[in-house]
């Protein structure tokens, strides 16, 4: 079956002072309806740029985008800007980290939802207004009929995130892309917002692409996981596969370096060094400078994302060994 959203060999680069900076280097993703795919990575890994390229909100130029992004089999990257806007606008909902920056501060939230419905759905003012109140109610904003007149700054951080979710689902998109949707929120509010997103997804059957650096959030909500490092997918599998037995030393290190809230642990494992600068990637495997399993071939040959049993994949020369070592 054709996946809902398919990304193939996506490459994004930006001009830099000393040549192009390759932010995304051949990323492939598949998202099915009703599934949640987490794109996990640290700052500079290229996860947000990947999301922006899929959403079609990168400025091209200066950015250069190559590869393929298809939605229900239809190529998006070759569409005219006008068609692209329409497809992305109606079929891909977007939620960002910073709702204050994503919402327009000089219009009430009701006006922002109403305008969207009038332009895209041709609704009458009264119908759009009614629908806006329904949407605010859907994302559980208390007293939606009153709050529809309020401006973004009159909402708390968690409530603003709900408003953005209401806007993102207003046109009933097939795919929701959420880029660090709860990173700026407190843990109690984060739990509420993730619960809400999961519930809406269950009801609507959207595919959810969740961009995050938070392993805990991934473990709580994802079905499938793609781990990104230095602009590449280094490991791919189901959430159980990844957490129960990672097949890439980077994933292995990330999991071991996380302190746990549910137990007292001894010294943390620390991955040495820092993520590489995308303008100056090392030769060979981009992780080799920080890897405790490094061998000479890692320094010279870039490992491709190769399949492993049970439909998972890892971009490591030693993937089979890593998997044997980490599987319980």
């Amino acid at each position: 079956m054709e996946p809902l959203l398919k990304v193939t060999d996506l490459r994004v680069s930006f001009p830099g002072p000393s040549g192009p900076v390759h932010a995304v280097n051949g990323v492939g993703l598949e998202l099915a309806a009703g599934r949640t795919l987490a794109l996990l990575g640290e700052s500079g890994s290229g996860k947000s740029v990947t999301a922006q390229a899929v959403m079609g909100i990168l400025d091209v130029p200066p950015a250069r985008v190559a590869g393929s992004v298809t939605l229900r089999g239809r190529e998006l990257l070759t569409l005219s800007p006008r068609d692209r806007d329409r497809v992305s606008g109606e079929e891909i909902g977007m939620v960002f980290q910073d709702a204050m920056a994503a919402l327009n501060p000089v219009f009430s939230v009701g006006d922002q939802i109403t305008e969207l419905l009038r332009v895209r759905r041709g609704m009458s003012r009264a119908d759009a207004r009614r629908r806006a109140v329904e949407l605010l109610d859907r994302v559980r904003i208390p007293a939606p009929a009153n709050r529809v007149k309020d401006y973004p700054h009159q909402f708390s951080g968690g409530m603003r995130q709900r408003v953005m979710i209401a806007l993102a689902i207003a046109l009933e998109p097939a795919v929701l892309i959420a880029d660090e949707p709860t990173t700026a929120l407190d843990v109690t509010v984060q739990a509420q917002v993730m619960e809400l997103i999961a519930e809406i997804q269950r009801d609507s059957g959207m595919g959810l692409l969740l961009i995050t650096h938070d392993l805990g959030v991934v473990a709580e909500v994802a079905d499938d996981v793609a781990v990104m490092y230095a602009g590449r997918i280094v490991e791919r599998g189901t959430v159980e596969q990844i957490f129960d037995g990672p097949a890439h030393p980077y994933t292995e290190g990330l999991l071991a370096s996380m302190p746990r809230v549910d137990r007292t642990d001894e010294e943390l494992y620390a991955i040495p060094g820092a993520p590489p600068n995308p303008a100056r990637l090392p030769t060979g495997c981009p992780f080799h400078l920080r890897c405790h399993r490094v061998t000479p071939e890692c320094r010279s040959d870039l490992p491709a994302l190769e399949p492993l049993p049970a439909h998972r994949a890892s971009a490591c020369h030693h993937r089979t060994e890593v998997l044997h070592a980490t599987q319980r």
Partner: peptide
């Protein structure tokens, strides 16, 4: 409310 990195327990 703290997410636990253990999909099996969710």
């Amino acid at each position: 409310a703290v997410p636990v990195p253990e999909p099996a327990s969710r």
